[in-house]
């Protein structure tokens, strides 16, 4: 894992940067940490896939397709990254 991205705050900031590229108009600070990101930001399946590809690149982790369902909310993703 990228050593600059170890705290939940740093992870959250990095995730916001990624999400901003896909939903530039959204106010991410108002995104509840336990809200399903796709529904909340109206992300289609192609963008959802690309967001996970970006998470994979940014955090240097492999995400098997069978784990996609575990990565629904901000809290989900952060705990997945810290496990």
């Amino acid at each position: 894992m990228n050593t600059n991205l170890q705290t939940p705050e740093a992870m959250r900031a990095a995730l916001f940067e990624i999400l901003h590229n896909f939903a530039p108009e959204a106010d991410l600070n108002s995104l509840p940490a336990d809200a399903p990101i796709r529904e909340y930001l109206d992300i289609d399946s192609l963008d959802a896939f690309n967001i996970l590809v970006q998470v994979h690149k940014r955090f240097g982790i492999e995400i098997p397709e069978s784990d996609y369902g575990k990565l629904v909310t901000l809290n989900n993703i952060i705990s997945y990254l810290t496990k």
């Binding site: 590809v53 397709e65 069978s66």
Partner: peptide, 17 residues
């Protein structure tokens, strides 16, 4: 598709659409 994607690196996976 699940089987196929399991063989592929993340960037090369395919969505069902």
């Amino acid at each position: 598709l699940s089987e196929e994607n399991a063989k592929r690196p993340m960037e090369d996976r395919i969505i069902y659409a």
